[in-house]
């Protein structure tokens, strides 16, 4: 498609317009997406590899990593079970109030993480009725691990259900009904018919859920009380280190989370390219 030849496909933009558009978009993306990503790694390694690795070996850093892994290990399976249950109820049955239920499931996405944390503090904080009873019984929730888990589950609540519902609607109920008429038990139908059909969508949802769970900041900042070694997850520890001018330590921990984000994106893209037909329609591009 040479510029010199006069003919141009009338349903395409001129080559110059294309170049301008691509150039503009790529420049803005470089300023806003690629540069910040690059800076995380360059700042982490600004004093060399050894300093970065040493800062990860410090108590604060590895306690934060361990805590974040613990929180994700509890909250992601909780959300996966919820997502499966909600998608099963919504797609395999007809009942009144279904649209309302779907709206409620999506609700956490439109609530600010800080407001989510605030809600949990008001319900379960030491000065609330319920929270006071729990503290009295020796099970503090707010400013302790359970609060961090609850806040994380809240903000990542809709991810799995959202991926599963459209896929399960598309697949319909015929296969499950066939298995049932052949005498399979309900549990067996779920395991051998439904689960293989939705496994890639489930993985996709879990992937997004996990990324959010490990990176959540606002809600956790409110409920955690920022106690080192107890409730200071990786993002909270990054904030504390950054505010204490421990730049290399903060950016090294940030680089670990950035690597996790890159891995999430890579896996997500692989799923979109190779298992597109098993994902919801909006994910196939």
């Amino acid at each position: 498609m040479s510029d010199l030849i006069a003919f141009r496909n009338p349903t395409e933009e001129s080559p110059w317009a294309r170049r301008l558009l691509i150039g503009t978009v790529v420049s803005i993306l470089s300023l806003l997406l690629f540069a910040p990503l690059f800076v995380v790694f360059s700042e982490a390694l600004s004093r060399g590899w050894m300093t970065a690795v040493e800062s990860l070996g410090q108590r604060d850093a590895w306690q934060a990593i361990r805590l974040t892994l613990t929180v994700a290990a509890i909250s992601v399976p909780m959300n996966a079970v919820f997502g499966l249950a909600a998608a099963w109820a919504i797609t395999k049955f007809d009942f009144r109030g279904k649209a309302f239920l779907i709206t409620l499931i999506d609700l956490p996405f439109s609530v600010s993480p800080v407001v989510a944390g605030l809600c949990l503090v008001l319900l379960l904080g030491a000065n609330s009725t319920l929270g006071g009873m729990l503290v009295g019984a020796g099970v503090p929730i707010i400013f302790a691990l359970p609060g961090v888990v609850l806040a994380t589950v809240f903000v990542s609540f809709p991810f799995v259900a959202r991926e599963l519902i459209p896929v399960m609607i598309e697949q319909g109920r015929a296969e499950e009904e066939a298995a049932l008429t052949l005498g399979a038990s309900g549990w067996r139908v779920f395991r051998t018919v439904t689960l293989p059909n939705i496994r890639w969508a489930l993985l996709y949802g879990v992937l997004l859920c996990n990324a959010r769970a490990m990176g959540e900041f606002g809600a956790v900042a409110v409920v955690s009380g920022r106690i080192r070694g107890e409730t200071a997850t990786m993002p909270i520890t990054i904030e504390m280190m950054y505010n204490e001018y421990l730049s290399v330590a903060a950016f090294t921990l940030a680089a670990v989370l950035a690597l996790l984000a890159l891995m999430t994106l890579a896996l997500k893209s692989i799923l979109e390219w190779y298992h597109a037909d098993a994902l919801a329609a909006t994910r196939r591009h």
């Binding site: 997406l33 910040p36 959010r212 900041f217 989370l257 984000a261 994106l265 997500k268 893209s269």
Partner: peptide, 23 residues
């Protein structure tokens, strides 16, 4: 670029915050 568009979803907000501030 297509894969990178979702970076703001995947990158924790605190990480984005300190990176943007530094830049």
């Amino acid at each position: 670029i297509d894969a990178a568009v979702d970076l703001p979803f995947a990158l924790p907000t605190a990480v984005a915050g300190i990176a943007l501030t530094t830049l």
